[in-house]
Write a protein that binds this DNA or RNA. Structure first.
Lengths: 333, 333
DNA sequence: ACCTGTCGAGTAATCGTTTTCTCAGACGCT
DNA sequence: AGCGTCTGAGAAAACGATTACTCGACAGGT
């Protein structure tokens, strides 16, 4: 594989001049520069990244560590990050921590070893995993969930407020016993969605009970079991707030098994807009989170922190939007 | 940030010994090795990746270039690749070419520059984009779509056969005028699905007409328009074969707008199993592609090619499975 | 006692860039 | 003419790891 020395030799200049010509840095005689360029093209020279990064002591690469590649919310974030990063010549490498603190730790180590310029992550929970990043002063932005007892730039969605609004919406449409199916305790978004739900009930002096709440992993199977479990008791809910789209699938599947109709029999509002939400019968009411914008904001914050390391950490909160559809139109009878 | 010299100095040994101890390579006095290890831990030493890669002339990193991060088919592939790669200590970086030959070319350049150990990609079509990889002998595996006029290890799904089977299934259930909505001409999967559809019709001496076929980008909006267009003619189809899950959303949306019921009025079979396919009313019949297994197979092939560069290229074809549900149960009346 | 082989650790070369130094020559000003 | 000043290019020093080479010490065989 051709090196810069080969290019320099072919162009009849020193490697220093070749480097300068290729990077368009300092002033180089146009004639020499042209010779270098043609030589590079003829040898189809591609700079050696590791060598460059070693010398420069930094790589134009951002690491994005997300907790679930199969969750559309996170892939939308990824697109937002990518689009912003590419505009300014950064590459993005995407890592999937799978809600697993061990994998997260491992990817963080890789990011440090590869000396990436910065890291964006949705922390799985154990905030000590990010200590190595903080210790080294690697620029970092957390998305979706804040770090519990540490501090960094953060981009969040106003999830508590949205949960409150969605719950109020269910009450306003005539549902009386509203349940909530949310994610594991300790995951901030799960806790916030539950808190918003509780606040809304309290504000409306609505009956509330721990028996109407279920917590499970953020997945379809767990949500289905939770929903069946909610309906396996004396006084089941007549509506539920569901904390993400994978869970919504489980909940709708459970209702189908139970022979209950969303909306008419059981009101449903779920977090995350998906392509299919409008397609099911009746269409599913959702809280649409601005995932793409979260990604964009996170990338911009990270880039500006790379510029200026000791700016004070900021927190950005983006609003979500309730899209009311048939599944929360109100009970019949 | 601590370097290996710092570690060596603290442990009172040479950098060579420190390196040997840290990598567990050659024999090192256990006592010295222990001193190195503690020093490394105390300094929270992390090896400098670029330096290591520069010296070793290769990085334990695989690049995975997929054409759409938001398509569940490709994210499943990604998980398959990751799981296999991690077992043997490789990292995977995921790049999203967005069905865009320019972005694909760019990511291929990045992969070459970073001297990754190998590349897995789903080619957007213009097969010349991979020339730089072939020229440099970078190990490469293509997935989902073969290269048109070049050769490399390839992992495919038996998509033509599945399309034929799905079409036969629709005929067997009593549909007479079967249409097809597939992806852009030149994209191999789109062409193959169309070819399979045509073969099935021909084999059954079934009426066939160009007016029953629409080609569009692999997305929801295009498929919706295509479907509306199909039904805007004198003799619309009474069933359709749809080439992926995003398109299926568009097709179902169009049917909703037209007031037609899937299955009873218009039979529908779509490629790609999704969480929500069983949830819509009636449930959607699909061709389930073994995406995760495609990813696993691709990763294994790539790893073995990294071991042995001049093995002859192979092609692996995995079968898909038709899951019949309500949307192809047969017309009424 | 001497030679040989082995083992373990240090010295120094190396990977391919970028960048600091250095220096020669040109230029302009007095 | 003499003296800075400036420009542009080459020589060489980094960057931080791995590893080929070297060398001393020690063990064992003759």
């Amino acid at each position: 594989m051709a090196t810069i020395s080969d290019v320099a030799r072919m162009a009849g200049v020193s490697t220093a001049t070749a480097s300068r010509a290729l990077n368009g840095k300092s002033t180089v005689d146009p004639e020499l520069a042209a010779r270098v360029m043609t030589a590079a093209r003829q040898l189809s020279y591609q700079p050696n990244g590791p060598a460059r990064n070693l010398r420069r002591q930094e790589a134009a690469v951002l690491a994005l560590i997300i907790s679930d590649v199969e969750n559309p919310f996170f892939t939308s974030i990824a697109r937002g990050v990518e689009d912003v990063a590419h505009e300014v010549g950064y590459s993005v490498v995407l890592c999937n921590s799978d809600e697993n603190a061990e994998k997260e730790r491992r990817y963080i180590d890789v990011a440090i070893q590869e000396r990436v310029a910065g890291v964006i992550l949705s922390p799985t929970g154990e905030s000590t995993t990010v200590d190595p990043l903080l210790a080294r002063g690697t620029p970092m932005v957390t998305v979706d969930r804040p770090l519990t007892d540490r501090t960094s730039d953060t981009v969040l969605v106003a999830t508590l407020e949205s949960a409150r609004e969605a719950t109020a919406h269910l009450m306003a449409h005539g549902y009386r016993r509203i349940g909530c199916i949310t994610g594991p305790s300790g995951v901030r978004t799960a806790d916030d969605r539950l808190a918003g739900y509780r606040e809304a009930l309290r504000a409306a002096k609505h009956p509330s009970s721990a028996r109407l709440v279920r917590r499970t992993e953020y997945r379809e199977a767990g949500a289905r079991r939770a929903m069946l479990d909610l309906f396996d008791q004396a006084e089941p809910p007549d509506a539920v707030l569901v904390a993400n789209s994978a869970m919504a699938v489980g909940v709708l599947a459970a209702l189908k098994e139970l022979g209950l109709r969303p909306g008419a029999d059981v009101g449903v509002v779920a977090f995350d807009e998906t392509p299919w939400a409008a397609l099911v019968d009746p269409p599913l009411s959702v809280v649409a989170q601005p995932a793409y914008e979260v990604g964009q904001a996170a990338a911009r914050l990270l880039l500006s922190r790379i510029e200026d390391t000791d700016r004070a950490p900021t927190t950005t909160v983006l609003g979500a939007r309730l899209i009311a559809r048939g599944s929360s139109a109100g009970p019949v009878g």
